[in-house]
Nucleic acid binder design. Structure first.
Length: 125
DNA sequence: AACTTGACGAGGG
DNA sequence: CCCCTCGCCAAGT
């Protein structure tokens, strides 16, 4: 029944799980997410999955392309909506609508560490 | 079941 | 630095 549907969306689910953990003011690239998830995942598919993401529960705006720019320029209803949201979170873009990934890109290792912290009882934290 | 599309990325010109 | 091409794989038609 529904479980079947859930199982089918497992692929997307993994992408969302990562995106949901990106801190405010930080960004990740589609390719990076694909690399973390491993085989079967490519920047293309990650982007496709993000398109279908639930904008209410997933901070989709924190996922940008490897150029440090938003790929949503023309599709978001208010143009460059993604960039506007990120700017509101503290990410600065230049005139070419690009941000410095060296500053804002969040490392995958930080993600794993955070995962560990989450699993650990907060006693030792 | 096959073809097309797409929120990408790397490489070459 | 900008533009074009190819590879990549899920989802929609």
């Amino acid at each position: 029944m529904e479980d079947k549907q859930v199982n089918e969306q497992k692929y997307r689910r993994r992408v969302y799980e990562i995106v949901k953990k990106i801190p405010v003011g930080r960004v990740m690239t589609y390719g990076q997410i694909a690399a973390i998830l491993g085989e079967g995942y490519t920047p293309r598919t990650v982007g496709y999955v993000m398109h279908a993401a639930d904008t209410e529960n997933v901070p989709w705006q924190r996922v940008i392309n490897s150029q440090g720019a938003c790929s949503t320029g023309r599709m978001t209803v208010p143009v460059n909506l993604q960039q506007q949201i990120l700017e509101a979170e503290g990410v600065k873009f230049n005139e070419k609508s690009r941000c410095d990934l060296k500053v804002y890109q969040w490392s995958a290792e930080g993600f794993e560490e955070k995962e560990k912290e989450d699993e650990q009882p907060s006693l030792f934290r």
